[in-house]
Design a protein around this nucleic acid. Structure first.
Length: 839
RNA sequence: GCCCGGGUGGCGAAAUUGGUAUACGCGCAAGACUUAAAAUUUUGUUGCCGCAAGGCAGUGUGGGUUCGAUUCCCACCCCGGGCACCA
């Protein structure tokens, strides 16, 4: 019936769909016609922003987290995010935005270096090779990147500016040398930042992390802790509230870990001498100063310098030093294990004085107190803190209740520590007060200070590895640490034969005398270069700015002192970067804002995380499991358009999902159906307009909202309806092709071309829907009786309520249920339902 | 332990944010085409009862609010993620 040749006047003979020929053809055409070349530049972005209140409305900067080019190449999961940005970027371009959609490579760092060591090649050569492989793999997917802006973090012209930013940090005291013990990975043989550790293990290799004291460069990210936290929720005059997934915001909040509390000084005395000589003050940090009267002892972290200072007054020196030594041997994971039994030693001969009631309490050292949080010492209130409770129980220390859950007094007689809020008891003049309301008052009464503390630690920035940006600093015997003058940047990483980590705490660069020994820039005397390199995250902390320069050459600082570098409008990548890359990049961006280089306070306005694609077996895709699916093979077999449709249709974009090659047939059938629609194009007017306009609305909104799966579903519905119809006009088919184009760029450009269009569909205008066409003339009204669906009928749009009531109650299907009952109430929802309640 | 998500057919998932639960796709079953298979195509596909019309149940579990709850509230159970001896 539907193939009746008398009705369908074909414009073109049907030809078989050959994705291999067709996709290659269009990829070549796009490249030669340069339709994806971005006109956007940092400068034009800035100028656009200056034009009016519609800041950056014209430009649209959509960015993928750039990959590090591993030797294994891409698997089918990697392109998911890239396809998503591609879909958005294509729609935005068609909507008339000046789109910036670039790609580059994050090629410094441990993964690249370890791969090179394993394969026994120089990392620089491995990177070059891997990058070209990655690019080939990306090209066949038909992504609209502007490759003229490609960047590579290992390019000296690039890392010159990574080094430049370091120098700016140094100049402002935000980069400094530290000798504090840091986390050390014994396998990768390098120091690590707090962010590089997962459950006490090296995030890269899984080795147990050790503590090691050594000279380190550290960035003072903690100076930005408050802004990194508050700007997650702050809208600014020039910047909307960050449109980020709540889970990532929350992960950052947890990571930054703000808490408010009191600093309180406990004087210590030597209680062996007759007149109790005052030794020094131990300052503690507590979030519960309301429990101050319940303090029964004080604990200091064993490695704290105060312990060493007090040691001469301690009568059990040996015991104490033994404990300090043994706690040093513990790994981070042993020490911070929640379930670990408490250990500790009392500093005998010393007492601390509770400033609230002048009570003398013992002083202990224990590794349950962390040296690098708060002040490294705590006041212990076993009655109201679970850790202190456990410790007190184990060592038989007194427990004193000072908070009662209810006003009347203790409800449960001290069987456990009560950590909730309540009413003060045994607290002198504060008795009866509500615990929460009295914190600041108690703090003041003992001369304490109300402060804010963060869990965020400063960023350990040195790596004792070869493959990273050299830290641009020179150590002079006379002048000390001297920054490399800006004119001498970049400090190039020398090409070497041996680049394996030494494990000595020095980087392999230290062995290259020719490179290390330099003249001091200040006094021209003998000096040595800093041989540590920057961590993997350095280059990626500002790379999005580099893309904004069309020629990739402009200095990061504008000669005219104009700050025009801006933000990314949409940023897509893995959620695993929540507390690493995304914190570091925000930190650097804010710093660059402070020194006048960027014009915005946040780097990424909208962020979306990609859900991982797992192997068919549900495990992470990995060579190890043999479950890796290669995109090249999928593209060869099914076509890039099919791969794109499939990956976008699999499920909600941010959700983790297992790959299924079998399920790809659905996407392929859809593409083939679209291909066959060409034979339905005719002059005859048919009633598809409403369907098409509804689909335009849905697809436009869904792409905007990154709901690609439902966008494709509505495209499928449209195809099915067009297929069921007898024909479609050229104009209507063109409407459809244009909203499909972002998802399936090759086949749509081919069909667009076959319909007689000369220019690419991807630079055609995105269709607008007509709200008048979308409105339904008749709507379906449901009828409920006592909350159950009992019937339905059609009525003109916007029918009056009484009219709907009448029709509904008169329906035979409904009469049946009303028989013998009286109507108590009728609820009418316009254009939707009539709900009847009977007795 | 604390904090974020989430739990819907055989499977991946939809649901205008309080208004027809299961759209779209996969799979499966039956039919058509075929010597046959693949491909294609048609029909069906939440469960139970029924020849059917239809009825009853049904969105992790148990309660509640409402004419009406996948959606809101309370309690609990599972799954994923973040933080965690952070005082």
């Amino acid at each position: 019936m539907k193939n009746d040749a008398n009705i369908v006047k074909q414009t073109k003979p049907a030809q078989p769909y050959n994705h291999l020929i067709l996709e290659k053809k269009w990829q070549k055409k796009w490249a030669s016609s340069k339709i994806y070349k971005s006109r956007e530049s940092a400068k034009s972005t800035y100028k656009n922003a200056q034009k009016g209140k519609n800041t950056g409305r014209d430009k649209y900067y959509v960015l993928d987290m750039f990959p590090y080019p591993s030797g294994e190449g891409l698997h089918v999961g990697h392109p998911k995010g890239y396809i998503a940005t591609d879909v958005v970027s294509r729609m935005k371009r068609m909507q008339g935005h000046s789109v910036l959609h670039p790609m580059g490579f994050d090629a410094f760092g441990l993964p690249a270096e370890n791969y090179a060591i394993k394969m026994k090649v120089n990392p620089a050569d491995a990177v070059t090779k891997n990058v070209s492989r990655f690019k080939k793999q990306l090209e066949i997917i038909g992504l609209d990147y502007d490759w003229s802006r490609e960047i590579n973090t290992t390019d000296p012209a690039y890392y010159k500016w990574t080094q430049w930013i370091f120098l700016q940090l140094l100049e402002r005291g935000l980069a400094f040398e530290s000798y504090e013990p840091i986390n050390w990975c014994p396998v990768d043989k390098t120091g690590l930042a707090n962010e590089d550790i997962e459950n006490g293990r090296c995030e890269r290799c899984g080795a147990l992390v050790e503590k090691k004291s050594m000279k380190q460069w550290v960035l003072k990210i903690t100076d930005y802790a408050d802004r990194l936290l508050s700007d997650l929720d702050a809208a600014d005059y020039q910047m909307p509230l960050l449109d980020w997934p709540e889970s990532i915001k929350e992960a950052q909040r947890n990571w930054i870990g703000r808490s408010e509390g009191a600093l309180i000084k406990f004087p210590t005395i030597n209680n062996q001498t007759p007149n109790a000589k005052h030794l020094k003050d131990i300052e503690v940090f507590t979030t519960r100063p309301d429990t101050l009267f319940g303090v029964t002892y004080v604990v200091i972290a064993p490695e704290h310098k105060w312990v060493a200072e007090l040691l001469t007054h301690v009568s059990n020196k040996k015991e104490v030093t033994d404990y300090i030594a043994s706690s040093k041997l513990e790994t981070e994971i042993e020490r911070t294990d929640v379930k670990k039994e408490k250990t500790g030693v009392e500093l005998k001969g010393i007492r601390a004085v509770n400033p609230a009631n002048n009570e003398e309490v013992p002083v202990w050292i224990s590794d349950y107190v962390l040296a690098d949080y708060g002040t490294g010492a705590v006041m212990a209130v076993p009655a109201h803190d679970e850790r202190d409770w456990e410790f007190a129980k184990k060592f038989g220390l007194p427990i004193k209740h000072v908070i009662a859950p209810e006003r009347k007094g203790l409800s449960d007689e001290s069987k456990y520590s009560f950590t909730g809020d309540g009413f003060l008891i045994g607290s002198d003049k504060f008795d009866g007060r509500e615990s929460n309301s009295v914190k600041k008052e108690i703090t003041e009464s003992v001369g304490g200070k109300w402060v804010t503390k963060y869990k965020l630690r400063d960023w350990v920035f040195s790596r004792q590895r070869y493959w990273g940006e050299p830290i641009p600093v020179i150590h002079c015997e006379k002048c000390g640490t001297v920054p490399v003058p800006e004119k001498d940047l970049p400090v190039k990483l020398p090409r070497v034969k041996s680049y394996e980590p030494t494990g000595t705490g020095e980087s392999p660069l230290a062995a290259i005398a020719k490179w290390v020994n330099v003249k001091c820039p200040k006094c021209k005397g003998k000096a040595k270069r800093e041989t540590n390199t920057m961590p993997q995250w350095a280059g990626s902390s500002w790379y999005y700015l580099r893309y904004m320069d069309p020629k990739n050459k402009r200095a990061l600082v504008d000669p005219k002192k104009e700050k025009y570098w801006s933000s990314v409008d949409l940023y897509i990548g893995g959620a695993e970067h929540a507390t690493r890359h995304l914190i570091y990049a925000r930190f650097w961006h804010k710093f660059l804002y402070d020194i006048g280089v960027v014009s915005t306070i946040e780097p990424f306005i909208k962020l979306q995380s990609v859900g991982l694609i797992m192997g068919e077996d549900g495990r992470k895709m990995s060579k190890r499991f043999g479950n890796v699916v290669n995109p090249d093979e999928i593209v060869a077999r099914f076509g890039a358009d099919t791969l794109r449709i499939y990956e976008m249709f699999m499920g909600p974009f941010d959700q983790q999902i297992s790959w299924s090659t079998d399920s790809m047939v659905g996407a392929r059938r859809f593409i083939e159906k679209v291909w066959k629609l060409l034979s339905k194009v005719t002059d005859t007017e048919v009633t598809l307009l409403k369907t098409l306009h509804k689909t335009i609305k849905k697809v436009t909104e869904d792409i905007q909202g990154l709901k690609f799966n439902t966008a494709i579903s509505s495209l499928m519905i449209a195809v099915n309806e067009i297929d069921d119809a007898e024909a479609i006009t050229k104009e209507q088919f063109e409407l459809f092709l244009r909203i499909l184009a972002p998802f399936a760029p090759h086949i749509t450009d081919e069909l667009w071309n076959l319909l007689g269009n000369k220019k690419s569909i991807h630079i055609s205008a995105w269709p607008a829907y007509d709200p008048m066409i979308i409105v339904d003339d008749d709507v379906r009204i449901m009828v409920q009786v006592n909350g159950k669906m009992r019937g339905r009928f059609m009525a003109p749009n916007d029918s009056p309520q009484d009219r709907l009531e009448q029709t509904a109650t008169a329906l035979p299907d409904i009469q049946k249920w009303l028989d013998g009952k009286t109507i108590k109430k009728i609820v009418v929802v316009p254009n939707r339902l009539v709900s009847i309640v009977t007795s």
